[in-house]
């Protein structure tokens, strides 16, 4: 069986999705994804020349509404779900790594 996806590609795709796959898990994920992508490739047997793709089957077209803000009065409930807050704001760690260790 030819390889559909390599360990390096799996690492790359994981990075795009903000996931880290540990090195010892890499062969496990790569083998599984390879098999599934092999299945995906069976679609190449289907003649889709000139066929419009379907992205949704909704019967609604161009749904519009007034662009107005609504106050749900739930600031506290929202903040209660945040992992770290201060003075009514959500706190995050430093955006730029100043230690230089993570490059």
């Amino acid at each position: 069986m030819t390889e559909k996806i390599s360990e390096d590609q799996v690492k790359h795709v994981a990075g795009l999705a903000k996931l880290k796959i540990d090195d010892d898990q890499l062969p496990y994920f790569t083998t599984q994804l390879d098999k599934i992508i092999g299945l995906f490739e069976t679609l190449s047997e289907v003649d889709t020349e000139g066929v419009e793709p379907t992205s949704s089957v909704t019967d609604q077209v161009n749904v519009m509404r007034e662009d107005v803000a609504e106050d749900w009065h739930q600031q506290q409930a929202l903040l209660d779900n945040a992992p770290d807050t201060q003075d009514g704001y959500i706190r995050t760690p430093t955006i730029i790594d100043e230690s230089g260790e993570n490059e």
Binding site: A17, K18, L19, K20, I21, L78, N81, A82, P83, D84, I90, T92, P93, T94, I95, I96, D97, S99, E101, N102
Partner: peptide, 24 residues
């Protein structure tokens, strides 16, 4: 992403690290 709700990983160095660790 570990920011507004849900699990946030501990011991992270920066925002990128927070996203990746929280999700992983």
């Amino acid at each position: 992403d570990g920011i507004r709700y849900g699990r946030r990983a501990k011991d992270v160095k920066n925002l990128e690290d927070l996203y990746v660790k929280s999700r992983s």
